[in-house]
């Protein structure tokens, strides 16, 4: 589904990604771990299409198409979703209507008719229940005045409604207490299927107790230094990251 080959990216002339290789197939869950500042969010942002990064070499192919050629909205229509590490507040823009416009733009792209208000609301209510999002959040401005945990829950709620093929979760577990973590992870698990894939960036092994990964990658210094199964995450928790770099 996703093939990243020798990806190099710079910000303001500073090299951040220095040759990333990653292959994600349908049905798989990948975890990306690594020290702060190693480039994990940069990788997620580049895949989602955020401006401000200069791709100096390499390629990103998604469903056999060149992802780097597409605008962020085209990527969304094609089924790429990014749950932000720091979800953005948008005063004055309604949470639900934003999603409705997003869903209908995607449907239009797929040649489908727009959902009417009733069908859309029944999906919204069902998905809000899935992540136990209080319905009062639906009619508020996007993320405005939400607590850190509520913002993360809102990200997973949006993901549930948009139903992506490739979900990138950037530290969705940070700032969640254990109950919220269980709810969010439960939501993610319900969305897992043989047709979609999940790439989650995390610092903590504890998330992986709830969402079991097929692969664990260590990203350090702009490169994937090591790949293993979930036991690698346990080892990282015990020994930190330094040994991985030394070994590499």
């Amino acid at each position: 589904m996703l093939v990243v080959q020798d990806l190099h990216a710079e910000v303001d002339g500073k090299a951040i990604l220095k040759g990333i290789n990653l292959e994600v197939n349908a049905g798989e869950v990948h975890a990306i771990m690594g020290p702060n500042g190693s480039g994990k969010s940069t990788l997620a942002n580049v895949i989602a299409g955020r401006d401000g990064y200069k791709i100096t070499s390499g390629s990103v192919t998604y469903k056999n198409k060149d992802l780097l050629e597409m605008s962020p909205e085209e990527r969304a229509w094609e089924g790429v979703f990014l749950a932000f590490q720091y979800p953005v507040e948008i005063p004055g823009v309604n949470n639900t209507y934003l999603l409705k416009a997003g869903v209908n733009a995607q449907r239009k792209h797929q040649g489908l008719d727009a959902l009417d208000a009733f069908d859309f609301m029944s999906i919204v209510k069902e998905k809000a229940k899935l992540v136990e999002l209080d319905p009062s959040f639906l009619s508020r401005s996007v993320n405005e005045g939400f607590s850190g945990g509520e913002k993360k829950r809102n990200e997973i709620f949006q993901m549930a409604v948009l139903n992506p093929s490739l979900a990138l979760l950037d530290e969705t577990d940070s700032g969640l207490d254990i109950d919220a973590l269980r709810i969010v992870a439960g939501g993610v698990n319900k969305l897992r299927s043989a047709d979609n894939a999940i790439v989650m960036v995390t610092h903590y092994q504890r998330l992986l107790n709830y969402i079991e990964p097929d692969f664990v990658h260590v990203l350090a210094d702009g490169k994937i230094q090591k790949t293993g199964d979930k036991s690698l995450a346990l080892e990282l928790e015990e020994r930190g990251y330094d040994w991985v770099k030394e070994e590499a």
């Binding site: 989602a48 299409g49 955020r50 401006d51 605008s71 962020p72 909205e73 990527r75 969304a76 229509w77 979703f81 990014l82 932000f84 979800p87 953005v88 948008i90 823009v93 934003l98 999603l99 416009a101 997003g102 869903v103 733009a105 995607q106 996007v142 949006q158 948009l162």
Partner: peptide, 9 residues
């Protein structure tokens, strides 16, 4: 970018 990543043009 946030809105575009949700599929808004």
């Amino acid at each position: 970018f946030y809105m575009r990543s949700r599929g808004i043009s």
